[in-house]
Nucleic acid binder design. Structure first.
Lengths: 184, 184
DNA sequence: AATTCATAAATTGTTAACAATTCTGATTGA
DNA sequence: TCAATCAGAATTGTTAACAATTTATGAATT
């Protein structure tokens, strides 16, 4: 469900029906309500009493720039911390996540690109702090909901390649710089 | 429930039982689960599959400073926007919220102080942007969970009095400055 | 005394039924 | 024609029962 939202499959303000989702995922309305509630709290959906949830309207440019700067400072902090104690395993994981993102860009599949973009960023945030990870999610889900509607796949691939290369080279300054270019 | 959490009534890592809450609030487990899920997504509780939720562990000093700076930049933006088009009614609301906070400080009731502190800040954030309001909640709930364990009531009262006075005087610079002093 | 294992109790997860509310569309009356 | 009204249909809200899982208990074994 979240992947549908961040990839922009659903129109803004479109209402979400619990029963339909329950059938789609082969479960009852209870767990569906749980999921919708989580997405509401993350900001991807909006809830109105007795009317259910609908897809959030996009951020204004003003709001977007505030959120972007918050997300950037959060990610910069996490990336610094992450790079201080990076293991061999982290190397492999990052390479894998990057590879997946690039292949999604190649096949120009928007839902997958959006999802793997998030997954890559999420990795270093999560490694740095689980507390910050949940906050980061709330910021990122909203930003990507608009971004995913006007992105160029080639740019996404090359931007992230630069970032990951710098990380693997343990070049903190360069990594932070490229991250800043990417998180608009 | 949220007020219990932000006021520090519950110990860290303490597990929360759905049945007990259901009885306390005179309802069934369904709505209780909804509420717990929301608080989890806000970051006040931590969920573990098949084990329920427990109170979140406090932020480290490092995490705290990152979150604080994010919250400050968000609140400064909202306060600026709010002050640009403030109505007579906003005047009254702010005065009322401040009055309530001060009286809670006088009676030294920690749960109420924490709740009304948040309510005051929340007012200008909510007036500026409902999108930013939900993000702000997630940041603030966590910060206050630690703050409420070591606060001095007199300071809280006077700090907020200064802020609100500056706002009512339409002195943006002063308001932002005092806000910066308050949101550590 | 410590460990293992089986059993029981407590707790969370899921479901279906029912209640309450909102939405829809036809009917009525001016 | 238009607005108001009223059933019914669709949707969300709540509940209690049951299923699945985890935790606690205590006896048996080493």
């Amino acid at each position: 469900m979240r992947s549908d939202l961040i990839s922009g499959k659903l129109d803004f303000d479109q209402p979400i029906r619990e029963q339909r989702l329950a059938e789609r995922f082969g479960t009852s309305r209870g767990p569906v309500r749980d999921a919708l509630l989580r997405l509401t709290q993350e900001g991807a959906l909006v809830y109105e009493p007795n009317k259910g949830v609908r897809v959030t309207s996009p951020l204004s440019d003003e709001e977007r720039s505030v959120v972007a700067s918050m997300r950037l400072s959060l990610e910069k902090h996490c990336l610094s911390k992450f790079m201080k104690n990076m293991s061999e395993n982290d190397h492999r994981e990052l390479s894998l996540l990057l590879e997946r993102l690039i292949s999604a860009c190649d096949s120009a599949s928007l839902p997958e690109v959006a999802e793997r973009d998030l997954a890559l960023h999420r990795y270093w945030v999560a490694q740095a702090s689980s507390h910050l990870e949940t906050m980061w999610l709330g910021l990122s889900v909203r930003m990507i909901m608009k971004y995913s509607r006007l992105a160029k796949y080639e740019d996404i691939a090359s931007e992230h390649q630069r970032i990951v290369e710098a990380i693997l080279d343990k070049d903190l300054d360069k990594a932070l710089y490229f991250l800043g270019e990417n998180v608009i």
